[in-house]
Amino acid sequence: MAKRIDVSGLHVYYGDFKAVEDVSMTIEPRAVTAFIGSSGCGKSTFLRALNRMHEVAPNARVEGKVMLDDQDIYAPDVDPVAVRREIGMVFQRPNPFPTMSIYDNVIAGAKLNNQRLGRTEADDIVERSLHGANLWEEVKDRLSKPGAGLSGGQQQRLCIARAIAVEPAVLLMDEPCSALDPISTLAIEDLIAKLKENYTICIVTHNMQQAARVSDQTAFFNLAGTGKPGRLIEMDETNKIFTKPDKKETENYITGRFG
């Protein structure tokens, strides 16, 4: 049930500080959209604003609209909890709950939404989600072992399994491979390619090759200057961005002339 995200005129503030300025874009369903740009350019903040995770920081607020299909996630009577259930997130560092087993980690979110989850149903969800995250074969014999005992790449796929067990429409990934070795990174990239059949996926990455490999659309963010807010410079088909971008700034960044 992948959904389209339509952002129009989005500004993100932390207190008085404006972190992201006036971003408008459309994120297509069943596709991977990559956000690239130098450190501190607001791409992560923007990503977190897409499922209202930025509200964890004190005094964070936004102006503008983010439509998930036909619903504004910032409408006054929308509950951020419901938004996050619909728009899942995978973080930079794998963060399985340390006190829970692999099984409990996967089922944690699904349990919240359905408190009377039967044992067989739960087993189904766990198996399905772990299959979905390409992790089932590796862990099926040790589901009751702690999730923290897995390798970094496996932990990250566990986190992805945990996110998709809630059956979200959108998956946001905040540099999901930056803490992983190349082999694990490859596994995650394969997984992303598979997941996009069913989900809308946004991925923040520092790695331009990765953006080129996994994404259909690429959005380039940059700072207007030191202390200024981050802006969306250009967004287009990934091919186009990496071969002949419209803006000079983008080209400079892509070719490594700065950034």
Partner: peptide, 24 residues
């Protein structure tokens, strides 16, 4: 990271506390 993990699954504040804070 653990608190955000819980929130990103759609946990309320109390569920976040029960899931990530109290066991820890």
């Amino acid at each position: 990271a653990h608190r955000e993990a819980a929130l990103s699954l759609g946990a309320t504040r109390w569920e976040m506390i029960r899931m990530a804070v109290l066991p820890f």
